[in-house]
Design a protein around this nucleic acid. Structure first.
Length: 155
DNA sequence: GCCAACGTTGGC
DNA sequence: GCCAACGTTGGC
């Protein structure tokens, strides 16, 4: 089983919005970066776990956890001309872009902020903390995953 | 295949 | 709003 961290700007899609979805499940669509596409298509499996990270907001940080409830499949928003993520290079018979479904596991009692993540030496290799990191999905090690869960639990 | 220009991301 | 970092594009 794999662990991930998935970023979203809360103005676009927040953990609160995920909590309001039927069955607390949503498509993680709109990814238009090839490295992340490859993770969605080739590596993310049903049952994997992921942190939900709020970016580009007042307090960036991890706000909860999710599970991957459907492995990678074609991101159909790329086929819809009216969609802001439309990409004519992607066709239903040969999709260029992929998405997964995610289901909320739980919201943390408090956000584990970016500032707090930076304070812990154990987490210093997290990709999210690397300068200039722009990938919207990054792998997390089991050690990092459990350490952060503990931070959330010790609130 | 190189690389400059451009666009986007995201913290501050 | 600024700016550093980096991916993508397109001319050559």
């Amino acid at each position: 089983m794999n662990y991930w961290l998935m970023k979203s700007e809360p103005d676009a899609f927040s953990i609160e919005a995920l909590a309001r979805m039927p069955r607390k499940t949503a498509h993680w669509d709109g990814v238009r970066n090839f490295q992340v596409r490859n993770m969605l298509r080739d590596q993310m499996r049903k049952g994997d776990l992921a942190f939900f990270y709020h970016s580009s907001c007042a307090v960036p940080g991890i706000v909860g956890s999710m599970k991957v409830s459907r492995a990678g499949y074609a991101d159909f928003t790329a086929f819809v001309p009216e969609n802001p993520h439309f990409d004519p290079r992607s066709r239903p018979e040969k999709p260029l872009w992929y998405m997964v479904d995610v289901t909320l596991v739980r919201r943390f009692p408090r956000p584990i902020t970016l500032t707090e993540l930076r304070r812990h030496a154990v987490l210093k290799n997290m990709l999210i903390l690397r300068r200039g990191n722009r990938l919207s999905i990054t792998p997390v090690t089991a050690k990092q995953w459990h350490f952060i869960l503990k931070l959330a639990a010790d609130t």
